[in-house]
């Protein structure tokens, strides 16, 4: 694998070019991703937004090296990962990506420290180094005193913080958060989001996948997907960023239009 180079902060870390993902359902083809091109630079905080069925999950799977595109190329940190085999992808996931899932995805029978150690275990670190780095990572999310607890002994917000600690443990260039607040109440959800913003300020590249506009607006940049295509890509604070074209027609018809129609 290529070394992670220390290029300037505006270089492109994730480069999707003309990505198609096509599923065959019987005789018909479903274009989950229909020609997507997207650049994400180092240090950016990007939210990928869309309704269910828009292709955002497929997009996340491809960015997360959990899946390969039907066609198109994906360069991660300058390395073409779009045609990689299972085990090569596993190594990329281990070195380059930190996952934060909606359902936390902690392993119930392992304590917090062991859970956070997992990516380091598969990276082949020694037990002593694993433990030291896992504890440091837990300290970053303020849970070092609960290291020996099982996930079931923690609240949802705390569990999500553990999964953030796990994502950070290997110090990967990209943090990929898939609906990180989806299972949390609004208060703890806000906490998790502000933690992601803090990570962004510390220089991490964060890709957030969500269906929720209010959450997407916490990011710097919004990429909106519909029917497998990018329909908006730009700053998060512009009004178009949070409205889909379909949503115009789906909006309640104004009295003026009603009159015209009548």
């Amino acid at each position: 694998m290529q070394e992670i180079n220390n290029s300037p902060s505006d270089d492109v870390l994730i480069k999707l070019q003309d990505i198609y993902k096509i599923y065959h359902m019987g005789d018909s083809e479903v274009h989950a991703l229909d020609g997507i091109s997207l650049d994400i630079r180092r240090g950016e905080f990007v939210a990928i937004v869309g309704q269910s069925g828009s292709g955002k999950s497929t997009c996340m799977n491809i960015i997360g090296c959990l899946d390969v595109p039907t066609s198109g190329t994906y360069h991660l940190n300058g390395v073409d990962v779009s045609t990689m085999k299972d085990d090569e992808q596993a190594e990329i996931r281990n070195k380059m990506l930190g996952f934060i899932f909606q359902q936390y995805n902690l392993i119930p029978k392992l304590n917090l420290c062991e859970n956070v150690e997992l990516p380091l275990l598969y990276a082949g670190l020694s037990p002593a180094e694993r433990q030291q780095r896992a504890m440091a990572s837990l300290a970053r999310v303020g849970l070092e005193d609960k290291a020996q607890n099982l996930p079931s002994q923690l609240s949802g917000g705390q569990q999500q913080r553990v999964s953030i600690a796990r994502a950070l443990a290997g110090n990967p260039p990209v943090i990929l958060a898939d609906e990180p607040t989806g299972a949390l109440d609004s208060h703890t959800g806000r906490e998790v989001l502000s933690f992601l913003q803090k990570l962004h300020k510390d220089g991490n590249t964060i890709v957030l996948i969500t269906h929720d506009n209010s959450i997407a607006r916490q990011a710097q940049r919004i990429v909106r997907l519909a029917d497998g295509k990018i329909i908006y890509d730009g700053a998060a604070d512009r009004p178009e960023a949070v409205v889909q074209p379909d949503e115009f027609s789906a909006m309640p018809i104004t009295p003026a239009e009603e009159v015209q129609a009548g």
Binding site: D86, E91, R93, N94, N105, I107, L118, Y122, G170
Partner: peptide, 16 residues
């Protein structure tokens, strides 16, 4: 299955 999925997403290879 889910545990295996988690482990794989964190970088476990087939042989692991």
């Amino acid at each position: 299955t889910r545990e295996i999925g988690i482990r794989k997403s964190l970088g476990a290879k087939r042989r692991d």
